[in-house]
Amino acid sequence: MSGVHATARIRAREDGRGGTALPVLESDGPLALRRTRGDAGEARVMLVGAMSGPLGGDRFAVEADVGSGARLRVGSAAATIALPGQVKDEAHYAVRLDVADGGELHWLPEQLISARGSDLYVTTRADLAPGARLVLREEQVLGRVGEEPGRLTSRLVVRVGGRAVLDQELGCGPGASGGWDGPAVLAGHRAVGQIVVVRPEFAAEPVTARMLGESATLVPLAGPAALVTAVAPDGLRLRRLLDEALESLT
């Protein structure tokens, strides 16, 4: 018995009138895409989960392709909850982002919650041209209130002009190695998140590495990019930390 396989696709293109068209907005199974009202020149899309999941054995994927001159903002209507299912296999959730020169993408989904008994592998890969812009937020909450987490492995890869500026993987929960809950990683916190910001001007003027309060850091990456990493006791405080960090970069 296999899980659900689904791939949703978004393609954003400059419409010739200063706005952004969406020639492809393709939902699939539990991954429903809805266009919402955006600012001038920007297209906005919400990802709406049409069913629970991902469950064990499921393979979900979302792909976004942003062309030159297009501006796209993608969010989700609710948190994604990784749950155990009848199939005991690992679930997979893959995100693939491509942004051309002069394109801009804000990828701002709601939090991913790893429920007890779940087993999920998440991969996010972003490929940007040298003149592209990106704001990518990733937030993970280990367990619901009063609950131990499932197993969650997350890999994030960002490339600019074919060169990797970030490639990292974090494993948490039962069976994960590397002392994930120790003082060198989460230090007992149950929410972890990061924001990657890619801007061409960072190549000439990189950000300065610094602490942002007691549980967040800002560091320049090896390219026109910056990384904010934060840990917190819960998802609400994590979001507050990341919002404040992003505001400091604007």
Rank of each mutant, 00 (worst) to 15 (best):
S2T: 14
H5W: 12
T7M: 11
A8V: 07
A12V: 10
G18W: 07
T20M: 03
L22R: 05
A32M: 11
A40Y: 08
R44A: 11
M51I: 08
G57Y: 04
D58T: 05
D58E: 03
R59A: 15
E63R: 15
G67H: 13
S68Y: 00
A70N: 04
A77W: 05
A77E: 12
A78Y: 02
G85F: 06
G85P: 11
Q86S: 12
Y93C: 12
E104R: 15
L108N: 10
L108F: 01
I113A: 04
S114R: 00
A115N: 13
S118I: 01
L120G: 04
V122A: 11
T124I: 06
D127F: 05
A132G: 01
R137D: 13
E139N: 05
L142E: 10
T153C: 11
S154P: 10
A164W: 03
G171H: 00
G178H: 09
D181K: 03
D181Y: 07
G182K: 10
P183R: 09
A187G: 08
G188S: 08
G188N: 09
R190C: 04
V192C: 14
V192F: 11
I195W: 08
V197Y: 00
R199Y: 06
E201G: 10
F202Y: 15
A204D: 14
G213V: 10
G213K: 09
G213E: 11
A216K: 02
P220M: 02
A222E: 14
L227I: 00
T229H: 08
P233A: 12
R237D: 09
R240N: 09
D243G: 05
D243M: 08
L246Y: 06
